[in-house]
Design a protein around this nucleic acid. Structure first.
Lengths: 339, 339
DNA sequence: ACTTGGCACTCTTTACGCCGGAGTGCCAAG
DNA sequence: CTTGGCACTCCGGCGTAAAGAGTGCCAAGT
């Protein structure tokens, strides 16, 4: 619909507004970007863009500001990811190569991303569906509470407390541990449910309830838990956002503290293998209507195992941010594949 | 040094200032608190208090504001912890009793504390020195990388990645795992170093280096790692602080993201068994000079196993906050002792 | 049909001066 | 030692004024 020049105008508006944080007027536009036309022409174009909902003015006779819809068009049609500088690339390498641990990889990644983009970074823990069970450990905590620990061969460790319906003997637990390890040790996580289904039969009647409760928690842990954790960093960068809108920062912080919200944020869309963007209201969470999420799947090889991204004001440098997210996602993928 | 009435005046100033967030003058003081003297007398006292450094005025002919030193005196001599309301007590109980997990206890505690005090809450993971080793698991990740997992009988799980000096055979690892478990299984964490000291001798020469590297990481993990983790919540409450001093919020957020800073914050003082307060500059960290930390040790029984507390503006309700911190610390202690 | 220069209009932002209020410090008297 | 009085200071709010930025529209030009 919008012709060529109008698009150029929109692009210029977005770029200038991102750079200056101030509504941009027709005169400033024609000065800074060498469009071949006069300010009056630009004014006409801007009026048209406003009619179409791509830009808006905060109040009469102020400059124009991109709307969410405007940013969307910009991201979809007008922006290309900006490749990182050499220094940035080197920073990624040196920062990430020292990781000693899965936790460490995630924590370094999230800090790196925050620093690189100067925004809030979010990294989902890799969910390693195709991994298999290395060991199951059962630890009695009290007479009716036991701790269940699952170790996978990819280095993931999950723990979960189980309330048993009644007191359990040490011997039963020991027995259960042996049987569990022999039955599911080495199995793919996905195969575990089938493997343990008839395990309860091997126990005396009075212990079956206990065994069943342990098994149900085990399955729950394997299926759900690995999706639950995210890590974040760079919340201090929100203060820049708060500079102009002090009221918007609190709800964002609140949202970020809710793991659930974060997970939905990353999880709602199908995992993209490359970079995607959720802009403003598209986030479908009250406090996040003034922020954009730039995210990408990452993982070893071709398959995405989790998501990572950054959250910032809708008025952000999309090309740069998208470039950084893509670069980090790829590098982390490489690390996961290599280890 | 300061006589009785001057102390009363200081107390009144602190209370009023905390309540109103505005510098308090002599006239307002004598109106709100039924001191038996006139405003002129108060003025003299205030001048004396100012000479002694307990209060200050933001600018000439404005009301007075307590200094860090003033708050210190208030906390030490004038304040008593305010007991919680019944509703608050019940909130603690219902909130904390549902915990299913050590992680869960910590995460619920920190959220509860944040909500109760309307400030930033910090909870250190319990370090269970007196616990003993339940199981050690060794998982090969690649030819020169193995994952070491330690499970204690208190339900704590630690994992650590080990880079071996060279390739290691599965059999050696299996052997090591067996030997490790038989030697240190059931031992107190503190006893582990002694127990494993001569374990390397049991291996063939070419494997000793590998074994030694694994053992050193193991010891490291047991000694250091359990002190490292903290959890926090309620960062959104910082925005209230930022209302008046927008520039102070960013450094605080930065400090909070640095686990190291947080740990030093809690760790510098000897673990107190009851509530203690660190005010303003006493925190010895740049960005935290405008905040106070109210903290307490907590743990099962008499011995403190970790710390917990809240961070807020120096201008905070100390009696209320201290009461809340004490109550939560005690309740969590009870839970840990009970489970 | 599109572009352009001009112009009037609107609205925000900044500056300035003014005044009121709150609070202090000091003094002299009780 | 306390008290009332008083002069002085300084912040903060308010209204007006001027400046500046930007728009919308129109009529003329290409």
């Amino acid at each position: 619909m919008p012709d060529e020049r109008k698009l150029a105008v929109l692009r210029a508006i977005v770029e200038d507004f991102v750079a200056t944080k101030e509504p941009v007027g027709s005169k400033a536009l024609v000065e800074r970007h060498s469009l071949g036309v006069s300010s009056a022409t630009i004014r006409n174009d801007m009026a048209a863009l406003e009619d179409d909902g791509y830009i808006a003015q905060p109040h009469t006779s102020a400059g124009r500001v991109p709307t969410d819809k405007g940013y969307r068009l910009f991201v979809d049609k007008l922006a290309s990811m900006k490749p990182l500088s050499v220094a940035e690339r080197r920073a990624i390498a040196t920062f990430l190569d020292g990781a000693v641990d899965l936790d460490d990889v995630v924590s370094r990644t999230v800090r790196l991303l925050a620093q690189l983009t100067r925004q809030v970074a979010v990294v989902q823990y890799p969910l390693l569906n195709r991994s298999s069970v290395r060991h199951v450990e059962i630890v009695p905590i009290s007479t009716t509470r036991i701790l269940l620990v699952v170790i996978t061969d990819t280095g993931r460790v999950e723990q979960r407390l189980v309330e048993t319906p009644g007191p359990v003997g040490e011997d039963v637990l020991g027995d259960l541990r042996l049987k569990l390890n022999s039955v599911i040790g080495g199995r793919r996580l996905a195969d575990v449910p089938g493997a343990v289904s008839d395990l309860t039969c091997a126990f005396a009647d009075e212990d079956r309830l206990t065994v069943a409760s342990v098994l149900s928690v085990l399955l729950e842990t394997l299926i759900e838990r690995h999706e639950e954790r995210v890590m974040l960093a760079g919340t201090a960068h929100l203060t820049r956002l708060g500079q102009d809108f002090p009221h918007t920062i609190a709800p964002v912080l609140e949202a970020l503290e809710e793991q659930v919200v974060l997970m939905r944020l990353l999880g709602e869309a199908a995992h993209p293998s490359s970079v995607a963007v959720r802009i403003g209201q598209e986030n479908a969470h009250e406090g996040l209507s003034g922020t954009s999420l730039v995210y990408s799947g990452y993982g070893a090889g071709d398959e995405a195992v989790a998501q990572l991204g950054v959250l910032g004001p809708t008025r952000m440098d999309y090309p740069g941010t998208m470039g950084a997210v893509r670069a980090v996602a790829r590098y982390v993928g490489g690390i996961l594949a290599g280890s």
